[in-house]
Simulated assay, not measured.
Amino acid sequence: MDKIDLLIIVTVISLFISLFLAFFLLTVKTKYRTSNTLFAVFLIITAVDTSEPLFSLLSDGPSNLGMLRNTLAFLQIPVFYLYVLSVCYSDFKFKLKYIIHLLPFLLANAVLLPRFYTVDLASKINFIIHRQSMIELQFNHVLFHIQIVIYLIAVFRVLKKAKKLYLENYAGANINSYHWLFQFTVVLTVLYLIVVFKNIFKFSDYSYISEWIKIGILVFQLFIVCWYLFKALNNPGLFRNIDSKLKLASDMVSEEKKSDPETISKEQNSAELLKLKKYMMEEKPFLDPSLTIQHISNGIEIPTRELSVLINHQLGQHFYDFVNTYRIENAMAILKDVTKSKVTVLEILYEVGFNSKSSFNTAFKKHTGYTPTEYRKIL
């Protein structure tokens, strides 16, 4: 089997899986339709981008449609960025300002108008033959790579902020979802770096190396898409936790210092801390696995903003760790109780407010230095 046949086979498999998954995401009934639609669009654009070997077989020569297909790659990473926003923030909605993400795509096509889109077939053929020296294609490749860098940085910034907001305002187990979305973005970054490497050879005297790398990219791309979809479909409740209007505690502290440095006295902080700790010990709100800072705010009648600053800034803990401390202390008490020696670790983690064994084990070891099983054995 030669290189061309292998490329066609891999392309067909890639197209089938990507389009099948996209069709599933667009038709499945779910309340997360916006996120599913965005990821489906991402898959479709990816499929169109990787269909070049098939498109070349079916076309008689360069065409406007073929060039437009090439430039659709400029929409891929912006759509992924919007997808990340939609899964991180529960109140995500399409806004008119998002049209700005079309600019690289429109610019890439605009520069091709004079010497490709508006000329005859002979001129198009000449343009492709001399593509290595065509300033328009060189410009578009530089623009594409700059776009990748900017958007990947933006995605990592969104994930970093969303994770901080989650830790400061929520105490559920869904923090793990950010970890693997981060992992997926890292893998996607590696894929784009390989694409850059491929493009270097594409415009050199070793263009055949670019074709072999293209086959590797198709296989790698299939793997990461299937891996991500497997994760997402097996964990449909992940993400979609954060209200984008929430502010980080550090930002709120800075705002208060600018407006009124003496807004809250040390005595008031001490009184509120005592009230908070008393509420946690007596009411045990941490037993609720979906506990949020808003719930506690309502319970002790302290504004959410003040409570967030109190926990995250004054205590120096994320709300997530603050709540888990009480859960772990409660779990330790159960593990020490000889009358409950037959209660399993799984039963304990659900009883104290966790809903994930991995998050329970991680929090317990962070707090005690031991896993729950090890801790029970040393008692």
Rank of each mutant, 00 (worst) to 15 (best):
S210I: 03
K340I: 08
A22W: 03
T37H: 06
S123L: 10
K202M: 10
R327C: 04
P289H: 06
V155G: 00
V190S: 02
V87T: 07
M67D: 04
N355R: 13
L57Y: 12
L43M: 14
H318A: 13
I45H: 03
A331N: 05
P261A: 08
E211I: 06
S254F: 10
F197C: 02
A108C: 05
R115C: 03
I296C: 01
S359P: 00
F184G: 01
G299P: 07
Y206N: 02
L193F: 15
L54F: 12
F223L: 15
A73F: 04
D243M: 02
I146W: 04
C226N: 12
Y32G: 00
S207G: 02
E136Q: 13
G299R: 01
Y350V: 09
L191V: 07
K258Q: 15
F364I: 09
H179I: 08
T27W: 10
T34P: 01
L218F: 07
L273S: 08
I302C: 05
F230K: 15
V48W: 07
H145G: 02
T71I: 12
L75N: 05
I213S: 01
H318G: 04
A73L: 08
I4M: 10
D243S: 06
G216W: 15
K214P: 00
I8E: 06
T362S: 10
T50R: 09
E168Y: 01
V48I: 15
K3S: 07
F144M: 09
V28S: 03
E283G: 03
D91A: 07
V345N: 09
S308N: 13
F74T: 03
N64A: 10
K245T: 14
T50F: 13
F55G: 00
K277I: 08
Y151I: 11
S270A: 14
L15Q: 13
K377L: 11
V41L: 14
I129R: 11
E136P: 08
R157H: 09
E168R: 02
V338S: 13
I146Y: 08
H179T: 10
G216L: 15
S358M: 11
L165I: 01
C88P: 00
A110E: 09
L26A: 00
N241D: 14
L167N: 05
F105P: 01
E306Q: 11
I348W: 01
F319A: 03
K377T: 07
V253F: 01
N36L: 01
L248V: 06
T118Y: 04
K257E: 11
L188D: 04
I135Q: 05
L229C: 08
K31D: 13
N199D: 14
I9N: 12
S51L: 10
E374R: 06
T118Q: 09
E272L: 13
E267S: 13
V48T: 04
A47G: 08
N169L: 05
F223R: 14
K202N: 07
G369W: 01
I4L: 13
E136C: 06
Y370D: 06
D5T: 15
L310F: 06
G172C: 11
S297G: 12
R131W: 10
S63M: 02
K257S: 09
C88I: 01
L165H: 02
E267G: 03
D321W: 11
F197V: 08
V84N: 01
V323A: 07
I17T: 11
